[in-house]
Each structure stands twice: as C-alpha cells, then as structure tokens.
C-alpha cells in the first residue's frame, strides 16, 4: 500500500515551520512524523499526517507550496535488528533511499519506517512478497504512535 507524505518547499528562515504547524493545528490535523532536509538557502519539510488530502488543501490555501509525495510506510518490529532486515532487503535489491525516517507505534513491539524511494510501486510489490506490511493513509491514521523518533 502507498502512503502519502506532505512535502513542503520552504526558504531556510525562521517562522517557516511555525506557519505550517499553525495552519495544521487550526485544521485539527495530527502530525505523525516530520523530517527536514536543508540545501543551501531552502529546504523541504516532510510531514506524515493523519489526513494528507485535507492538510494539503489547507496548506495550499494558506499559500504554501506543497506536494503530496508517495512513500512507503513499512511496518517493522521494534526490536534489535528490526530495521536491519528491511535495510538488507532493500540493499540486496539495489533500491536507493532518498529519504527515510521512523516512529514507534507500540514500544518494543511495532514501529513504522517511512522510505522515499524512486520506484515506489516496484518496491512496494517486493516488500509485500517478502512479507513486509506497508500501511496506507487510512491505516496510518488509525494507529496511535507513542512517540516519534527520527
């Protein structure tokens, strides 16, 4: 299954994230996970939220440059080696990761690892074949993470 991440283009200056969180807070959108990549004078803020379509609409309305980007939210075991089994598989298959981040679902049991890869569909198929579960937006919004980890 394919999940959606909000990717937001922002200049590298104070107040950019505060603007986003203020819009999303008012819209009662829950943020599950965030990462930021910065290049020179600009950056991209990535958000996993419970309702990406509604969040996209609200942010666009507020003048934010936002893109809904398909990512894979892979369910992994929250235990030593849990992430490693996923990474070894992607490595063996020669899949390059553009961006990745994770958050714990249930401490010591389940975690979600979000990966942004070039060939999303192909990778999803491969993961399913190898027994990994990928979550879609609905599944992501139904779960209650305990805390976020980068």
């Amino acid at each position: 299954m394919i999940a959606y991440q909000l990717s937001i283009f922002a200049e590298d200056k104070p107040g950019k994230i505060a603007h986003l969180t203020s819009v999303l807070g008012k819209e009662k959108i829950n943020i599950r996970a965030t990462t930021i990549s910065t290049a020179d004078t600009f950056g991209i803020i990535n958000l996993i939220v419970d309702d990406p379509k509604r969040a996209e609409a609200a942010l666009t309305k507020a003048g934010v440059t936002v893109h809904l980007r398909s990512v894979l939210a892979v369910l992994i075991d929250d235990k030593p080696g849990g992430l490693d089994s996923l990474m070894q598989l992607l490595y063996q298959e020669g899949i390059n990761i553009n961006n990745a981040y994770g958050f714990v679902l249930e401490s010591s049991k389940k975690a979600v690892f979000v990966v942004d890869v070039d060939q999303t569909q192909k990778t999803e198929k491969l993961l399913e074949e190898k027994g990994f579960k990928t979550l879609d937006t609905l599944a992501l919004s139904a779960i209650e993470p305990t805390h976020n980890v980068k």
Binding site: S7, I8, F9, S37, F42, T65
Partner: peptide, 18 residues
Amino acid sequence: EVSKKYFAGDIKQLESLR
C-alpha cells in the same frame, strides 16, 4: 521562484535545477 508544478518534494531535483 520555483514553479508550483515543478515542485515534487525532491531536494536533489531542486539542487540540480539550481
């Protein structure tokens, strides 16, 4: 200004545009 249509959330793409 980056065109709205062009932006796909990819930092490498932006870097190469720059």
